[in-house]
């Protein structure tokens, strides 16, 4: 904030700073930072739910196994519904994206946590990898016919070139909106929560009001974290469908 020496010094962006864990000032490529820590925790959480949960291989599932099966069935059905049966080849990739985003979002809600998905670097890499692989896959599977994606056959002939321009622009905006949606939603909630928490510290006795607000906001953020993971995954499926079936 601009008034660093003011009394109301709320610094909502501090929680997003990438810093080395074991001393040092510079953040090199291989430095172990809080990013490393929280991504490692994400891996552990995914392992705990998906591997340890299904360890028993019980025919009648235990509680943990039900969760793992639920996640499996949820994404499996999503791909089947949105992309079609031939999209199931990419099930492990989409599952990886969903699991990472979901647990990074959820873990980021722990107080003092660092939210890896609130950084454009992370979400942009995810979105760009989806965008590039979908584009490459589209051309590999369909050849030049993939370009028919931009040529709307159902529209009047005169409108088609204009629509094609719009379609191409919207195609290239996809990774931008795909990544900024996730990072923005995560960042927004955390920053707002931090601002309200700062009010609580500044208001003295009346701290109850902002604390209640933060509590409500936290519930909303939990919902947003889940929905953003869902949305990121379902949009991946939608884009994948364009690569597999480019005709509208």
């Amino acid at each position: 904030m601009a008034d660093a020496n003011g009394s109301l010094a709320i610094r909502p962006m501090d929680q997003f700073v990438v810093r080395p864990l074991f001393g040092g000032e510079t953040v090199g490529m291989f430095t172990i930072t809080n990013v490393t820590l929280w991504m490692a925790l994400t891996v552990l959480a995914v392992t705990a739910v998906m591997v340890l949960g299904a360890r028993g291989r019980a025919l009648v599932p235990t509680r943990g196994q039900s969760v793992a099966e639920l996640a499996y069935g949820f994404i499996y059905k999503m791909i089947e519904d949105v992309t079609g049966r031939d999209g199931l080849r990419f099930f492990p990739y989409i599952m990886t994206i969903f699991m990472f985003v979901f647990f990074a979002n959820i873990l980021g809600l722990i107080p003092w946590a660092f939210t890896t998905t609130s950084h454009f670097a992370v979400t942009a890499v995810l979105a760009l990898s989806v965008f590039i692989s979908v584009t490459v896959l589209g051309f590999v599977l369909n050849g030049a016919a993939f370009l028919r994606l931009f040529w709307v056959d159902s529209a009047p002939l005169a409108l088609r070139p204009i629509l094609a321009v719009i379609e191409i622009i919207s195609y290239f905006v996809r990774p931008v909106s795909h990544s900024i949606r996730l990072a923005g939603a995560m960042m927004a909630g955390h920053a707002v929560a931090k601002v309200f928490a700062g009010f609580a510290a500044a208001l003295g006795v009346a701290f109850v009001v902002p604390v209640l607000a933060v509590t409500a906001l936290y519930a909303l953020e939990l919902l947003v974290a889940v929905i953003q993971a869902y949305v990121f995954t379902i949009l991946t499926c939608v884009y994948l469908k364009d690569a597999l079936h480019p005709h509208h």
């Binding site: 999503m78 519904d81 949105v82 909106s177 900024i180 949606r181 923005g184 939603a185 927004a188 929905i227 869902y230 949305v231 379902i234 949009l235 939608v238």
Partner: peptide
């Protein structure tokens, strides 16, 4: 699914 996709698109603009 369409509901959430629609919400995501609308919400993205707010996030922008």
């Amino acid at each position: 699914a369409m509901l959430f996709i629609g919400i995501a698109f609308a919400e993205a603009l707010g996030i922008f």
